[in-house]
Design a protein around this nucleic acid. Structure first.
Lengths: 349, 349
DNA sequence: TTGTAAGCGTTATCAT
DNA sequence: ATGATAACGCTTACAA
């Protein structure tokens, strides 16, 4: 009686598997596996019968077992510095979409701009058997490159583009984007620049952008005095505070370049608050284009990065590599300067 | 010669595994497994030796093999309607953080507010062997509940809280939050209300919020005339456009309740643009608290949801259930009314 | 405390 | 076109 009960329990409890389908269809497990993975290799009638039995039983192949034998997990890991940020969130969406379309699943982690944490998370992902990785930037933990090479895990660095980069990269050329933006302002006649930079700690993109500004300025024999330089993260409140600082240092800059959209919005709000005319008294520009920038009372000039294209491209590249195709090593994404009303010629002194 | 070459190749190529560690340490595979999974069950000296060999060889356990035998993947799947939204992005961050802390990995997908797509993505996740699921809302595909019950996959509905809900839920009580917000406005003296609602298509939270407004109004024998009701998604531009519509319908409402932060910001911007005094001419309130709302020239009254708490709680609940603990079935998160300057008593008629 | 050995549910290599 | 069967790399009774 007890035995009977246990048996019943077992039969209720036991997960149905490939063998159950095979038994029910009166074929070998190999044939069932084939109808799922290479249907064309199975005779139409048999295929039909097996397919219907699969449906009846509601069987779904066990991913772990499959991964164990194929050495492919069908997953891609992505480590972003943060998710609460417009561009990364958009990229994540596009990435996931593109991966799902091809039957891959996205594993996600956040590094908080900490390369050590990034390295650890990559480690976890590799343990999990990801088939590829999406990273941000190209300044990783010193051991990263070797680690991934040894494990033969393909990866792509996103949101960066440098033609002579070692690994694969998909993104805008950060340096050049700000080099151009700065030149645009110089050409408008600006000479006194202020910078509210995004912190370059663990952020090579921000560093590259800063370099772009400096390169453009020094080419024209310009520079940003210490009191016109400030560094923040990415909040509007910070933007306000830092802008107030810049404003206090006389003579005030006629053009302020902000490291990201939030800092820029904060700067503009504070400038308005201080009663400045924009762009008459000061031009304020940012990087990255979030909706509020074009809806502000003074719509803002900024650089628009095709973040979703970054995500989509990165996914495509990785999948192509997994399919054995040799894909190009670096892909540059648009970083378009969107000129709106927050920038204009400086008022004549 | 050829054979030799192949052999060499193989030995270079072969991934090192548990058995290699065991062989090198001169112990059984079981012991190695134990030192990794239950170190306390292995004698200290042996443990030390094995641990160091593991490090030397750089061995990491294969997740697929482990999952195959333990029937646990160590992964949790989350399906969000969108990621480009402040609250979901924040929740995702907190979720991932909490999961990582406990050794779990997050699988992420986006449903685009489409319950059919959500159902499919859940299906994929279950195939992948996720140990649990995080969903948003409680209005899922009709087959969802049964599907998950049959597969015995635990899940939690987030961003909703209804005491009599069937499944587990973690979130704010959407209806009550807007019921309270509306009453706050009524108590200020408002009688002519306008609504810029978030579309309720595939969004039971938005529907609940709308219900909350209606309940509060009808209790006081108030209602919103058709021309003072508009529906949008979540862009500032839409908020502007819809607000303009409401404004055109005379007499204009003295209080406008917006379905989300973006619509609210748009409404306020447009109202300013139209030269209205806020809150003198009109009170404008929103739902969800994004930074720009408190930085606007007129800081906005809104409802702040503890999104990261939602993510964290949901993770904890799921992990607790996986550990066999019986966790409470519904957890209500804060939905605090943040009163700022965009709301006040209506001007006397 | 440690070892032996039987799986976990697939895929893939052979034959047939 | 289909079938037998040996892996895949690990965990876990059970035995010692």
């Amino acid at each position: 009686m007890v035995l009977f009960f246990k048996k019943e329990l077992l039969s209720v409890t036991r997960r149905i598997g490939l063998r159950d389908v095979a038994r029910m269809a009166g074929v070998s497990t190999a044939t069932v596996s084939r109808t799922v993975n290479r249907p064309e290799a199975v005779s139409p009638e048999l295929r039909a019968r097996i397919t219907s039995i699969i449906g009846e039983l509601g069987w779904v192949p066990d991913a772990a077992a499959r991964a164990l034998v194929t050495r492919r997990s069908g997953t891609i890991g992505a480590v972003f510095p943060t998710l609460t940020h417009g561009d990364f969130a958009r990229a994540t969406g596009a990435l996931q979409d593109e991966l799902a379309r091809r039957g891959y699943t996205l594993l996600l982690a956040c590094s908080n701009y900490d390369s050590r944490l990034e390295y650890e998370q990559v480690g976890k992902f590799v343990e999990r058997g990801v088939d590829g990785l999406i990273l941000v930037g190209e300044a990783h933990h010193p051991d990263m490159a070797e680690f991934l090479a040894r494990r033969a895990v393909p990866y792509v660095n996103t949101f960066v583009y440098s033609p002579l980069s070692h690994g694969t990269c998909v993104g805008p050329d950060n340096r050049r984007a700000l080099y151009r933006l700065t030149n645009y302002l110089i050409d408008l006649g600006h000479r006194r620049f202020g910078i509210i930079a995004q912190s370059t700690r663990g952020n090579d993109r921000a560093a590259a952008r800063l370099q772009g500004i400096r390169d453009a300025l020094s080419e024209r024999d310009l520079a940003v005095p210490r009191q016109h330089f400030a560094e923040g993260q990415w909040s509007i409140a910070e933007g306000r505070g830092l802008y107030r600082q810049l404003l206090a240092a006389r003579p005030a800059p006629t053009a302020v370049i902000c490291g990201n959209a939030y800092l820029a919005v904060g700067a503009l709000l504070e400038s308005q608050h201080a009663g400045q005319a924009v762009p008459g008294d000061v031009s304020i520009v940012g990087y990255d284009d979030i909706e509020i920038m074009r809806e502000m009372p003074v719509p803002m000039t900024t650089v628009r990065v095709a973040s979703d294209e970054v995500g989509r491209r990165a996914a495509r590249h990785l999948l192509a590599r997994l399919d054995g195709e040799t894909a190009s090593d670096a892909y540059e994404c648009d970083a378009e300067i969107i000129v709106r009303n927050s920038s204009g010629p400086p008022r004549l002194a």
